[in-house]
């Protein structure tokens, strides 16, 4: 990583949901603020700014990460995915998103983007999760509306549907 000066703004370039993006940021700028306010992708939300609530979770090079504890400059050259990249195309929902809607797994929807990103990353690596495993993944997220049970059901249902699908990748990620 190049040496950055605290007093200056530096260009930051990375891929966001498969698309090359670029912006200017002070070295101290948080990734969450950069994505939301510089790049205008406001689907990622900030709930606590200290890494506990999980609302700001994004995928960085395929790993779930808190964008409130990550500096924008740290993702230079990385592949970042956010909730805006989950749906296969405008007007359609991914299997996981559709399961959330079917199971009423969200109410206010503020924490939902982070939960979707964690589950998306997790289910890619663990296509046949158990309920305790899903609950363990979700324990990194705080939801005040749902009591988690419908989120667990949606995740299990989505995992089952994805594993049944013969053209899994086509349905899941475009």
């Amino acid at each position: 990583m190049p040496r950055l000066s605290a007093a200056q703004r530096h260009p930051v370039r990375f891929r966001l949901n498969g698309e090359a993006v670029e912006g200017i940021a002070e070295p101290r700028m948080l990734l969450a603020d950069f994505i939301r306010h510089e790049l205008g992708r406001t689907g990622t939300h900030v709930g606590c700014e200290h890494g506990v609530c999980g609302a700001c979770t994004v995928s960085i090079d395929g790993t779930m990460a808190r964008s409130c504890l990550t500096l924008a400059a740290q993702v230079e050259g990385c592949e970042v995915r956010t909730v805006e990249g989950l749906a296969p195309e405008p007007g359609r929902l991914s299997v996981l998103q559709a399961a959330f809607r079917r199971h009423h797994a969200l109410q206010c929807g503020f924490c939902t983007a982070g939960i979707l990103m964690s589950l998306d990353v997790y289910l890619r690596a663990h296509p046949a999760p158990t309920e305790p495993e899903i609950r363990e993944v979700l324990s990194g997220h705080l939801c005040r509306c749902t009591g988690y049970a419908p989120i667990v059901r949606a995740a299990m249902d989505a995992a089952a549907e994805l594993s049944l699908s013969t053209r899994q990748e086509d349905v899941r990620y475009v």
Binding site: V83, F110, T112
Partner: peptide
């Protein structure tokens, strides 16, 4: 029925105050 609110919220298109 499924909620009319959910599609926007699930795709990052909610309109909260800081959005």
């Amino acid at each position: 029925p499924e909620r009319v609110e959910d599609a926007a919220l699930l795709t990052g298109n909610g309109r909260f105050i800081d959005d």
